[in-house]
């Protein structure tokens, strides 16, 4: 399978198999993901879309084949990762600001604390996602939509080449879903940010993404959308 755009790829999979603990979930994957696109990975529950995302994020090693990532300058790209919000333990007493600040830790050497520059960046990212007013609230008490805004702010604080999101609208109300998706579309449009988003809602993905990567029955297929954002 070839790539879906003439932009240079940030990810290149060659006969890759993804899965957990040596057990394949998706096999024989050969495709490229181009920069500058907003790609939605869509499929049923258990189809392997999150496994694919985690493999691309470097969280889960590929079971077989090759998965190569390349940044604009030939170095590995900086990834801004937004996990499923329920994966974070509510026992931790961390504020929304502290969560956003964690995004800056990738640039800091071991033993060096976050300085004023990092704090300012975290504040700016919270403002960009409309979460500035909840900075000092405990992250665990925020609503689903508010948590999502903070986690996207944290991903932006990494100053990413690629933004990876795992089900950013799962379990949140329709109004907040629209707000989150419009925020992602705006980030893609205004910052030319490359986005790869896992989602189970195909109509929603078609409305906002530039490409759809459909995952099902152990296979993937691409769909390039002619005019995203038009309903």
């Amino acid at each position: 399978m070839s790539n879906i755009s003439h932009n240079p790829p940030w990810a290149c999979l060659t006969d890759a198999t993804v899965g957990y603990d040596g057990r394949p979930v998706l096999a024989g994957l050969t495709f490229e993901l181009p920069r500058g696109r907003f790609t939605a990975v869509v499929g049923e529950n258990g189809s392997g879309k999150t496994t694919l995302l985690k493999t691309l994020a470097g969280i889960v090693p590929p079971v077989g084949g090759r998965v190569e990532l390349s940044g604009a300058n030939g170095e590995p790209p900086v990834l801004g990762y937004v996990p499923q919000r329920d994966s974070l333990d509510p026992l931790w007493p961390v504020s929304a600001f502290e969560v956003a600040l964690m995004g800056t830790y990738g640039r800091l050497v071991a033993g060096k604390g976050a300085g004023e520059a990092e704090r300012q960046l975290a504040r700016e990212c919270l403002a960009q996602t409309g979460a500035a007013d909840m900075a000092h609230k405990a992250f665990s008490v925020l609503s689903g939509g508010q948590k999502q805004r903070v986690l996207i702010a944290r991903a932006l604080a990494t100053q990413p080449d690629i933004l990876l999101l795992d089900e950013p609208t799962a379990g949140i109300d329709p109004e907040t879903t629209i707000a989150v998706m419009e925020m992602l579309s705006r980030l893609h449009r205004e910052k030319q940010l490359t986005i790869l988003m896992v989602n189970h809602d195909l109509p929603l993905a078609r409305k906002h993404a530039t490409d759809v990567l459909r995952v099902g029955d152990g296979k993937v297929s691409f769909e390039t959308l002619p005019n995203p954002g038009v309903t």
Partner: peptide
């Protein structure tokens, strides 16, 4: 105290820590 940033990061969100190549 010296490595609080790293220890808190890998303890709170190890997936983020991995994507940040810690």
């Amino acid at each position: 105290w010296l490595f609080r940033k790293e220890i808190i990061l890998v303890s709170y969100d190890r997936e983020l820590a991995m994507t940040l190549r810690k």
